[in-house]
């Protein structure tokens, strides 16, 4: 039960998520990458909770899950409606909100 391994896994997962957000164009994939970053953070919370013998980190992980579930609902519906109007899910196409 090496603490560093868990933290390292969390960091790797987070970095994969972050790179996914930056390099992928498909909104659904970007969304999945965001979920991966959230779960990486959850893993770190749970790990520290276990190490400190406190339940706080686990509680926060549940909160994050709930918020993520709510966010998924809103995010997916936005992506669907964008797809319906523009016939594409590429986030580079949805770039009207600019100077």
């Amino acid at each position: 039960m090496e603490l560093n391994n868990f933290i390292l896994l969390s960091a790797i997962l987070f970095s994969i998520g972050a790179v996914g957000v930056l390099v992928r164009r498909n909104a659904i994939v970007v969304f999945m990458s965001v979920e991966m970053m959230l779960n990486a953070a959850n893993l770190a919370f749970v790990t520290f909770a276990k190490a400190n013998g406190s339940i706080d980190g686990q509680v926060i992980a549940f909160f994050v899950m709930v918020v993520a579930a709510a966010e998924v609902v809103v995010g997916l519906s936005i992506i669907v409606s964008i797809f319906r109007t523009r016939r594409t899910a590429s986030i580079d196409e949805a770039s009207l909100l600019k100077f």
């Binding site: 986030i91 580079d92 909100l97 600019k98 100077f99």
Partner: peptide, 11 residues
């Protein structure tokens, strides 16, 4: 000019 509208650049 920095407001490009590209979500990925903001990220």
């Amino acid at each position: 000019r920095t407001q490009t509208g590209f979500v990925r650049s903001y990220a």
